[in-house]
């Protein structure tokens, strides 16, 4: 079980759209995971494997830089799926 946070500044608009599409990508890949949304401040203290976010957040989330995955278009399911698949391979989660 992989734990993913989708993070945007406020944690209620963009990150929610991202969460929906990350969940769809996981289903498609057959990876079991839990996806939650967080704002840039509420991520502190959380335990997770991966953060999916937007490039604008890279400075604020610098301390998690090994766990960051960036997407530029929250609605592009194929792009999100491709990015995640690449990351999962790197992490050795899928073959």
């Amino acid at each position: 079980m992989i734990k993913i946070f989708t993070v945007c500044p406020q944690g209620l608009g963009s990150s929610l759209i991202a969460k929906i599409n990350v969940q769809k990508a996981l289903e498609k890949m057959g990876v079991e995971g839990e996806v939650e949304t967080a704002g840039v401040t509420s991520i502190t203290g959380q335990v997770f494997d991966l953060i999916v976010t937007i490039p604008e957040m890279s400075d604020s989330l610098e301390r998690y830089k090994d766990k960051l995955v960036f997407v530029t278009n929250f609605f592009k399911r194929d792009e999100i799926a491709d990015t995640l698949e690449k990351k999962f391979r790197e992490m050795g989660l899928i073959e």
């Binding site: 406020q10 209620l12 963009s14 604008e56 278009n73 929250f74 609605f75 592009k76």
Partner: peptide, 23 residues
């Protein structure tokens, strides 16, 4: 204010922006 503080991340897809603020 959200856009001024955090940048234009609310442009979620080409041509489409979704401004929002906290409840």
């Amino acid at each position: 204010e959200v856009v001024k503080e955090f940048g234009p991340y609310i442009v979620l897809a080409p041509g489409f922006a979704m401004p929002h603020a906290k409840a």
